[in-house]
Amino acid sequence: MARKANIAREEIHQACWELIEKNSFPNIPRLTEYFLQKDGRRCSNTTFLNAITDWEEAYKEQQQHELSELNDVLLPVFKRFSREVTQNLGKLLDEKSSEIEQHQKLKQEATRSGYMSLSSALIELQTAYDSLMSEHKKVGDEAETFKQKFAFSEQRYQEVIAQNSVLTSQIKQEEKDNAELRINLAQKEVDLAKQDNQIAKLTEENAKLAAFLEENQQNKIKNDAKKWQEMTKKLDALTSSVKTMQRKDRGTKQ
């Protein structure tokens, strides 16, 4: 029969968490090895199996909670980043467009008033254009930086999803293995019960045989004692007869 468990379910749950931190998914052989190395304790496979089943539910809830938290953190960041970039680009373009329009008005006024030559207008226009291009490059660099950060966050997000998928597959495989273990355990318990019945029958038969042998031994002892008594009586009678004959023989000679 299976040995009675002496390991608390909470201890088994803690062992499961420690194994998963080491990237080792808990199962009955690993838990058995864990407690043997820790303090040498053992318990039944059924106890391990029930505790693992409870722990798997808690583990699934934790994974779903972490994934939900990651979505809650990343999605607002992505949306805010996209919104800020769009707003900044729009604002910058509006400002530069206003500056160009203002310069254009100043040039037109200068031309009409005679205060600004055509070459000065071209220089100012070129200066404004260069400034706009410089700002455009700066915004482009910032956008590229944001894009890289976004790509990194997206990569991390996909890695978490992939890891969760792998863990889900592992859980399904472990559930399949645990189901097979349950079936094997049930069959072993049935076989063990049959063996117990056979042992009980053999024990009963051995007891009967021992009693029968004991009875035969006692009967043999009694029979041997009886035969010995009869032989003793015959020997005594023969001895007495011989003595009588000897006495008669001596009387005749006298």
Rank of each mutant, 00 (worst) to 15 (best):
A2H: 02
R3A: 07
R9C: 10
H13M: 10
Q14I: 06
A15G: 01
I20W: 03
I20D: 06
I20E: 10
N23M: 04
S24T: 08
P26D: 04
P26H: 00
I28H: 00
P29V: 13
L31H: 09
L31F: 07
T32L: 05
E33T: 11
Y34R: 05
L36A: 06
L36R: 07
Q37K: 14
Q37V: 05
D39V: 01
C43F: 08
N45G: 10
N50P: 01
E57I: 09
E57V: 12
A58D: 12
Y59C: 02
Y59D: 01
E61Q: 12
S68F: 13
L70N: 11
D72W: 13
V73H: 11
P76C: 03
V77I: 13
F78G: 05
R80T: 10
G90R: 14
L92Y: 10
L92T: 01
S98H: 09
E101L: 04
H103F: 01
K105I: 01
L106I: 02
A110V: 11
R112K: 14
M116N: 08
S117F: 01
S117L: 02
L118M: 08
S119N: 12
S120V: 10
L125S: 12
T127K: 14
Y129N: 15
Y129C: 15
Y129H: 15
D130L: 15
M133D: 05
E135D: 15
V139C: 11
G140K: 13
G140H: 06
E142N: 14
A143V: 14
T145F: 13
F152S: 15
E154L: 14
Q155K: 14
R156S: 11
R156G: 10
Q158N: 13
Q158I: 14
Q163K: 13
N164C: 05
N164P: 04
L167P: 00
T168V: 11
S169K: 11
Q170D: 05
Q173C: 07
E174F: 02
K176Y: 01
L181R: 13
L181P: 09
R182T: 03
I183F: 05
I183D: 12
N184Q: 09
L185N: 09
A186D: 11
K188C: 03
E189H: 02
E189L: 07
V190P: 00
D191I: 15
Q195C: 04
Q198T: 06
Q198S: 05
A200S: 12
A200C: 03
L202M: 13
A207W: 07
L209C: 00
F212W: 08
F212C: 00
E214R: 03
E215A: 11
E215W: 00
N216V: 04
N216D: 03
Q218T: 05
Q218S: 04
K220E: 06
W228K: 06
Q229F: 14
M231R: 14
A237D: 08
L238Y: 01
T239E: 02
S240M: 03
S241M: 04
R247A: 11
D249W: 02
R250D: 03
T252S: 05
K253Y: 06
K253M: 06
